[in-house]
C-alpha cells in the first residue's frame, strides 16, 4: 500500500490530501471526528484523577476534591444543594463578566483599531503617539488597579477600564504591525492598475492587514478574559472575578475553583467563536484557511 502511494506523482498526492490508502482498515467516520476531542480530554482526565485521589477522604486538605467542586458548580448554576448566598447566582455573575469583557473589548477595539491604522500609515501620528504608548505598554494591568480606582471610583467603571486596557495593546500592536508590513509591491501593483491615493487604503492596506488585525482582536479578547479577575477586584459586587475574590476571603475554595473553571470555559468558547468567524472572513489567507 505504501509502495503504491510512493509511486504516485507528487501533484496527485498534494491535490488529494484527504484520501486514505484504500487498504486502511475502515474506521467509522464518527470515530475519526471524535479522535481529536478524545485525545484532548486525556490530560484533563488524568489531572482530575490525580486531584481526586490526592484530596478525597482527607478532611484537612485545603483543596476540595473534584466532586465537591462539581457539586458546588451545580449549586452555583441551579441551586437546590447548599441554598446559601452563592446558590443559583452563576448566571448573574457570568453575564456581569461577559458584559465587562465584551464591553471593555469593544471600547478597546474602537480606540486601538483607528489609532493603530493611523500610527501605521501616518508618520506624524506615529511620532506623536508611538513613543508614549511604548513606554506605557510594559506597565501591567494590575499596576493600574489603584490609580484606576482613584480615577474611576470603586465599581464597574474601573473594571471596564482595566479590561479595556488589557485588550488594548494586543489590538494596537498587531494593527500597527499589519498595516506596516503590507508588501510594498502590492502598492505598486495597485497604482499601476489605476488605484491610487486614499483608495489604496481601502483596497490594499485594509484587506492586506486584516489577518494581523484579526490576530490582534483575538489576542485582545483573550487578554480581556485574563484580566477580568483583576478588573473585578475593584469592589464590584457581581462578576466571576468578584466571586473568586470574595470566596477566597470566606475560604470557599470550591467556589474559587468554580469561578476559575467558568472563566476558562467561557474564554475558550468565545475564542472558538472568534476563530470560526476568522476562518469565514479570511479564507484567502494561508494562515487561516
Amino acid at each position: 500500500m505504501s509502495a503504491s502511494l510512493d509511486a504516485a506523482p507528487p501533484e496527485t498526492l498534494s491535490a488529494l490530501p484527504a484520501v486514505e490508502p484504500e487498504e486502511a482498515p475502515a474506521r467509522p467516520p464518527w470515530l475519526k471526528r471524535a479522535r481529536d476531542p478524545l485525545l484532548a480530554l486525556i490530560f484533563p482526565a488524568l489531572v482530575l484523577l490525580f486531584w481526586h485521589f490526592a484530596t478525597t477522604g482527607r478532611p484537612y486538605s485545603l483543596i476540595p476534591p473534584p466532586l465537591d467542586v462539581a457539586r458546588a458548580l451545580y449549586d452555583l448554576a441551579f441551586g437546590g444543594i447548599n441554598d446559601d448566598a452563592y446558590s443559583r447566582t452563576l448566571l448573574v455573575h457570568l453575564s456581569a463578566s461577559l458584559s465587562r469583557v465584551y464591553g471593555g473589548f469593544a471600547i478597546a477595539a474602537a480606540v486601538a483599531l483607528p489609532l493603530g491604522l493611523m500610527i501605521g500609515r501616518i508618520p506624524l501620528v506615529r511620532r506623536l503617539f508611538d513613543p508614549t504608548l511604548q513606554v506605557l505598554r510594559p506597565i501591567p494591568v494590575t499596576a493600574w488597579l489603584p490609580l484606576s480606582m482613584i480615577i474611576f471610583g470603586l465599581g464597574p467603571r474601573s473594571a471596564f477600564f482595566l479590561v479595556c486596557l488589557g485588550a488594548f495593546y494586543p489590538i494596537l500592536i498587531n494593527t500597527i504591525f499589519g498595516v506596516r508590513s503590507v508588501d510594498p509591491r502590492l502598492f505598486e501593483a495597485a497604482s499601476m492598475l489605476g488605484c491610487q491615493g486614499t483608495a489604496q487604503f481601502y483596497k490594499v492596506v485594509l484587506p492586506a492587514s486584516l489577518p494581523a488585525i484579526f490576530t490582534g482582536l483575538r489576542l485582545g479578547l483573550g487578554f480581556a478574559w485574563v484580566v477580568i479577575v483583576v478588573g473585578e477586584m475593584t469592589g464590584v459586587p457581581t462578576g466571576l472575578g468578584a466571586i473568586i475574590m470574595e470566596a477566597r476571603q470566606l475560604s470557599r475554595t470550591e467556589i474559587v475553583i468554580c469561578g476559575m473553571a467558568v472563566i476558562g470555559i467561557a474564554g475558550f468558547i468565545s475564542d472558538r467563536v472568534v476563530l470560526l468567524i476568522g476562518h469565514r472572513l479570511l479564507r484567502w489567507s494561508p494562515n487561516f484557511a
Binding site: 502590492l186 501593483a189 489605476g194 483596497k203 484567502w284
Partner: peptide
C-alpha cells in the same frame, strides 16, 4: 508615475492574496 497603459508583471507575481483569480483580474 504608474498608469494602467503600462502594466508590470513582477517576478514574484504581487497578486492580491485576498482576491480570487476573478477578483485580481477585475481589480484594475
Amino acid at each position: 508615475g504608474p498608469g494602467p497603459e503600462r502594466g508590470m508583471v513582477f517576478q514574484d507575481y504581487a497578486l492580491f492574496p485576498w482576491l480570487t483569480v476573478r477578483g485580481n483580474i477585475g481589480f484594475g
